[in-house]
Computed example of a mutant assay.
Amino acid sequence: MTEILTPRLLLRQWQADDLVPMAEINADPAVMEWIGDGSVLDLEETADAIERWEEEWDDEGFGLFAVELLGSGELIGFTGLSVPHFLPEVLPAVQAEWRLGRQFWGQGYASEAAQAVLEWALQDRGLEHVIGICRTGHEASENVMRKLGMTLEREAVDPVYGFPLNVHGIDLTEYSG
């Protein structure tokens, strides 16, 4: 599996000792507020999610990286690419995703990691277009998407929860990093 190094982060494969810190991130109501119906995930649900993320690497040739803070080696969340099966109207699309622990918000880590993923998507995966999906009103994610150069492409509705969604996108042949 690929590893990506940025000035402050290591994007890497999942390790057994990532489960507990990722479960702690997923158990924080503030982190999960804008995801799905806002429900937190417990240890077992996080383990199942990591297993699905690892399977996507095998199925698609890309997936979600564990994001480690250089220097401390601390897991701060994830970033990467996935197929947004939950929103069939955008398929066949690939989305950039990120989720960080609350103590790591507002420090530019999400943008730094996602920019590295977009460069990897273009250079190593040969993707021409990547989208980002967030619930309408989630300003922090909207800000990261703007920093990445993504623009609003369409509005949608989450077919399970009924929340309005914004779908942003970027043509990677025009991506400047």
Rank of each mutant, 00 (worst) to 15 (best):
S111V: 06
F78C: 08
L87I: 05
T46D: 01
W57I: 10
G38R: 12
D59L: 15
F62Y: 12
G126R: 14
A113M: 06
E89T: 07
V130M: 05
G36E: 01
E139T: 12
V67T: 13
L122G: 13
T79G: 05
E74G: 09
V40A: 06
E89S: 12
V90I: 10
D37G: 15
A93C: 11
G149W: 01
S82N: 14
Q103I: 08
G61K: 09
W105T: 09
L122N: 14
E51C: 11
H129F: 14
G101D: 00
L148E: 03
H138C: 10
M150Q: 03
D48F: 11
L122P: 04
V144M: 10
V117H: 05
V40L: 06
L91K: 02
Y109R: 15
G137K: 11
C134A: 13
H138G: 09
E89M: 10
V117Q: 03
L152V: 10
E139N: 09
P88L: 01
G36N: 09
S141F: 02
D59N: 15
D37V: 10
S39V: 04
A110F: 02
G36K: 05
H129Q: 14
G36M: 08
A113D: 01
M145A: 08
H129G: 06
R99E: 00
R125F: 05
H129E: 11
W98F: 12
S141M: 06
S72W: 07
S72R: 12
E74D: 13
T46H: 02
T79D: 00
W57T: 05
G126T: 03
L43E: 12
V130N: 03
E112D: 07
D59M: 15
I133H: 01
L100Q: 03
